[in-house]
Design a protein around this nucleic acid. Structure first.
Lengths: 192, 192
DNA sequence: TCGGCTTCCTAAAAGATTTAGGTTGTTGCA
DNA sequence: TGCAACAACCTAAATCTTTTAGGAAGCCGA
């Protein structure tokens, strides 16, 4: 079959494609080797082990999502920015469910800091500039937005919405409406 | 070593304990067999295969969480109910991270319907009785509550909040405050 | 006490993970 | 152009996991 010309990056990319097709948990060195047409042992010149392979796919996905997010956020603020970033994550997850699952992989601190993770945090913070929240509340709001978006996507991807009306798009729109409304009228501390 | 007296249920329980200790993805028939002191092949009298083992752990976790949720919800309404159910899920996830991860396992439709899943849906609906929302909005609200709670827990468990102030308890309290406020002042359609 | 069910075993096949060590393209530079 | 060095890829082998087949032994009802 000749030489395929692999690199660590190409291995990760093949793993990402495989993840989207058969699920992230099915991505093994064996499966990736089969896919790129190479003996299993040859992969180990490019990735240290199975975990390293998974981490590389996760980093790839985080990077891709951050790039898309930054593009979507450019020139938008407030509600528009919120909707745009939300759509970025959700569309990515539906286009690339395996990669999205990979992006949830727990990374050790050092790896996480060197990943695109901080870019995601920064984008969340950027959205909040469109809403006037005092500093101590901003962190709470960032965590809320992340919870809503990722929580919804996980449920949708997991099929939780498959067997009840209305469709997931309507709920998504409505929920982002509500979230925007909440951020504009953020309840002050001690309010009951 | 004599006879251990296994049943499918005891195997699942051992798997659940193992999941909490080393992570759900590390739960294999081999590992469970070692834990209960039995040859691997012996497990296959109780579970069909590795996937069946995982499903049984997931069903166990869903059941346990539903029981706790029902107990927490008894005699509460509105904000109290929301906070109580949220705490149930979060406390369970922190006590039993492996089981909580197992509960996220995607089940096929039939299994899901026979599981405690519908009880969880019913509890979410029950919470909404404390807030007056028109029917078409109720589904959206249920999905929002699920997204917030599960999204937050997944992020917390994944370590997303480990390296920034304030602590996760404060954000959690604040976010449930905000969610309660949102449900009490649910924006009507078309509101911008 | 006997028959039958369940529990648990040994054995074995098939595949995944990983390491060691060797071969062969490819590339850059003398 | 030629060749040294590196990277890509290989075979072989050890270890572990998953699963099936078939058998031995404890336990329970009759």
């Amino acid at each position: 079959m000749g030489r395929v010309g692999l690199t660590a990056d190409r291995v990760a990319r093949a793993g990402a494609e495989l993840a989207d097709e058969v699920g992230f948990e099915q991505v093994t060195p064996s499966a990736v080797a089969r896919r790129v047409g190479v003996q299993v042992a040859s992969l180990y010149s490019h990735v240290r082990n199975a975990e390293d392979l998974r981490v590389r796919i996760a980093l790839l996905a985080l990077e891709e999502m951050a790039d898309r997010g930054a593009a979507a956020l450019a020139g938008r603020a407030g509600r528009d920015a919120l909707v745009a970033l939300g759509a970025t994550y959700r569309d990515y997850a539906r286009e690339h469910p395996g990669r999205y699952a990979a992006a949830q992989l727990r990374l050790d601190h050092e790896t996480a800091m060197a990943s695109a993770g901080p870019r995601h945090s920064a984008m969340m913070r950027a959205i909040l500039r469109g809403y006037e929240l005092p500093e101590p509340e901003q962190t709470h709001a960032v965590r809320l937005i992340g919870s809503v978006i990722h929580g919804y996507i996980i449920q949708e991807l997991g099929g939780s919405f498959d067997h009840s009306e209305p469709g997931p798009q309507q709920s998504w729109d409505r929920i982002l409406d509500a979230l925007d409304s909440l951020l504009r009228h953020w309840p002050h501390e001690g309010q009951r």
